[in-house]
Write a protein that binds this DNA or RNA. Structure first.
Lengths: 189, 189
DNA sequence: AATGACAGAGACAGGTCTGTATCACTTGTA
DNA sequence: TACAAGTGATACAGACCTGTCTCTGTCATT
């Protein structure tokens, strides 16, 4: 059973792209429906509300994000420091990509400051989970204060991401890479 | 000539507070009008459009922000390293404040990703100017790469700010302070 | 061929938001 | 007292956005 892509898949892919590149509030349902070449009824048959689509978008991005962590673990088993270096390196690479527009979770959190909002809660959970994964690796690397290092890296990560897409032309990803390495070093020596 | 506060002042103060704490898109004109206890006509006599009010809000915040830099210079003249330490310290303090909700410029940039938007352009200029001031101090401090250090500090600053207001309860401002100090040190020794 | 699940097209209701317009009131100054 | 400028209150237009509804078409399975 296979035509090309189900309506649901098309909607999610279009929405994921648009939400990421232009922001959630800025992209209306009508636009998503038009660009996925889907009927309005089909949209609401698959997603009860726009918020449900936002949650699906965030969960899709979270899967991608955690898969990078898995990748690092598989590439350098039992070498946590190398895992951290690898994650820093691929992030520093992805920042350079022309379509890079920051961390979807951070962006969502800033777009919906209201903690009661479903999108806010989902995005927050994604960020916390990711930081937990980094802290785990930092612990294996015997960092003096793994939670602090994870928090600092996420901090820098978050800042780099904002910086990069805000000020694309002048952004130098070396600055991120170097700073991240300095922080890791400062916890190991 | 003095009653208490002109309509214009009341509008700007209320808007500044609401925009900062709840976001620009999330706060409508009607709400600002209601909370400033002003008539709609009075609002539009003072600000042609909502965008004009946004610009006024950003400019007000920029004045506050640059005044901190001036403060550092006045407190420690000809001691650029102490100026940097001071700025790191007061930021690390302000993050702890219960009303802290991040950097108004970053938030605005993320709320309006469209580079053509007036609010986006104004906020971008504010950030660039601020980074320029930090780079100037770093140069006086004879940092090996002053622009890189300024960029890294802004990066960390931006990340801390996002982190802090996103995850208030668990945020530890020591992490920011320590990381910033490590970065400064790494450029001086 | 028939049935049932899903898809497309589009009208429409109800809400919100920005910005305009009208009218009456207050207050400082001449 | 009289005038003018700014203010409050409120109605309204026009745009946009979310979500509902109806009607028609398609396609796979039986």
């Amino acid at each position: 059973m296979k035509k090309k892509e189900s309506a649901k898949e098309r909607i999610l892919n279009v929405a994921s792209e648009l939400f990421y590149s232009e922001g959630i509030r800025a992209v209306g349902i009508d636009r998503i429906i038009a660009e996925s070449e889907v009927a309005k009824a089909s949209f609401y048959r698959n997603f009860a509300t726009k918020d449900d689509l936002v949650v699906a978008f965030l969960e899709q991005r979270q899967i991608r994000s955690l898969s990078k962590v898995e990748e690092a673990k598989n590439l350098y088993p039992d070498e946590p420091v190398k895992q951290l270096h690898y994650l820093i390196r691929i992030l520093s690479e992805s920042i350079k990509h022309p379509n890079f527009r920051g961390c979807p979770f951070t962006n969502t959190l800033l777009e919906f400051p209201d903690a009661a909002h479903l999108g806010h809660q989902t995005a927050l959970k994604c960020r916390v989970d990711h930081e937990g994964e980094i802290a785990k690796i930092a612990r294996q690397a015997k960092a003096r204060n793994p939670e602090a290092l994870a928090a600092q890296l996420e901090m820098l990560y978050g800042g780099a991401i904002v910086d990069a897409y805000i000020n694309k032309p002048t952004f130098d990803s070396h600055n991120f890479y170097d700073a991240a390495m300095v922080l890791v070093e400062s916890q190991l020596t």
